[in-house]
Every structure is written in C-alpha cells, then in structure tokens.
Amino acid sequence: MTAQNNISRMAAVIVVGLAAIVGLGLLLTLLGRGPGAPSLAVEPTAPHPDDQPVATVNKHDIYYSEWVEASLLDQVMSRLSGQTPPTPDETLQRLINESLVLAAFPPSAHPDDEAIAARIAALEQSWGADDATVQAALEQVGLTYGSLERAVGRLLEVQAALEEMESQGYDSTAWLEEQRSTARVEIEDDLVNATVPRIIAQAQQAAAGTAPAPEPSAPPTQKPQPTPSPKPTTAPTTAPTTAPAAASEAVTLTVAPDFSLPQAGGGTFTLTEQLKQGPVVLVFFQKCG
C-alpha cells in the first residue's frame, strides 16, 4: 500500500497529463513551469514539418512529431476524462521528465499488447466511453487508435521505471529536481513558439465543433463564432478578422487563453479575474513607445 502510494505520487509528478487521467491522482506538479493556460481540445495537425528535435535531453532527442502527438493525445484524453488538459508546454516538460526517468531506469522489456489493451480498457471504463467513442475522439484530432496504444505503452514503461526507482530508495520529486538542475536540456524555443499557437487553435476548432464533453474549467457556453458579423454601422469595417492564413501562423481564436502577469506597481494581473468585472480589450503592442 505504501509502495503503491509512493508510486502514485511519483507518477503524478512525472506523467503529468496521463497520470491524472489514469487515476494515479494528485495534482500535477511541474518543475518550474508558469501559470496554467487555456483548456482546450484539439483538431488534426497540419502535415508535420521536417521531423526535427524540439528538445534534447542529454543526448536524447524529443522529436517535433512526438511532442505534437503527445499534446494532441493529452487534449483528447483530458476531454474524455473531463479534466483540464495540460498546455503544449506542459506536455513537453512531461516528455522531458519521462525521458530522464527512462534513461536512468530503462525498462527491461516492452509492455506486451495484452497489458496495453487491459490498461486501455480500464481507462475507457473510467471515462465511461467505449472503443468507438474513443476512436472517434482520436480521429477528430487526426490521431489513430495506434497513437493511444503507443502512449499507454510508454505510460506502462514509465510506471515500471518509477517502480524501479522506488525500489532503489529514491524520492522521485527530489530525484527529478536534481536531474533537471544538472541535465543538459535544450529546447528549440523558436519551434515551440511557432507551434503552440497552432496546437491551441486546432484545439479550439475541435472544441467548438463536436467536442464530446464540455470543458470543466471553461463555461460550456462559448460562442462558436470565429468571425462574428459586424454590427450594423455606418463606419467602414475593413477586414473584420484575419483568416487562418497558411503562410503566417495567424489563427482565429474562439476562446481566450487565460494568463497572469505581474502588474506595474505590484500585484498580478489575471485575465479571468479581470473578466469578472467586464469585457476585456486585449491589445498587443508591437513596440513600446
């Protein structure tokens, strides 16, 4: 029982999104990550660009496609389980943590198909969803059942690694903190920054479409109107909104991602707090002054 608890705790730290979904419980603890962000679900990714590393952990590469797939899966599974999905950034941090764990405690064998199928069946039961529902949710974001099987296979490997870590007497949180402070982790910020908005936008399109379950943390009454028609007016209205352009990464948001930033003169500005007092006009200045 104690061992089980410890494993749960460790897994929750590392297997950020999946852990919560799988019912390993506890809040997600991320090492050094910022405030939470939008709750979203997702839609198919555009064709992957060159499959380049988005992060390198010591000498292990985490590929762009791996990250995008993991992000989409996190979104789907969170939606199915009615939980707030992790942000793409958080998913990347989870992959980095998992990579450290798996490198230090490599699994002796890959989980077999039966174990994977059994875990998926248990997940589906906890979601109250059948194969067809899950399949449809996956396809909605351009994933296949195979993506889920791979992810669950990896989850089982990470769990096995955590058990091994436990049996050697390590505390996972302390272990990870130390690893993160000493490991050579390089993140391709440009690639991440260029991709996060796309994942978010695709997520919102799916959420505005046929989302199977409402978001727990967002009002389910979002208006699915990316391009509201302008109000009758005499003033000329030019280009009410920017179409999702193929060349640039400009996207049409339907739900505003929440954020918190320190305010001049102290305190913190949080969008959701401000919205309690009325609508907000968010203005991005290209330059100061």
Binding site: A218, P219, T221, Q222, K223, Q225, P226, P228, P240, T241, T242, T252, L253, T254, V255, A256, D258, L271, T272, L275, K276, G278, P279, V280, V281, L282, V283, F284
Partner: peptide
C-alpha cells in the same frame, strides 16, 4: 486586438 467577453469568448480579433 482581441475583444474578450466575460465568459472568455473571443468576440472579435
């Protein structure tokens, strides 16, 4: 510019 309604919906961008 993003105009955000109280429920978090982006009304206009």
């Amino acid at each position: 510019v993003f105009v955000i309604d109280t429920d978090g919906a982006v009304l206009w961008q």
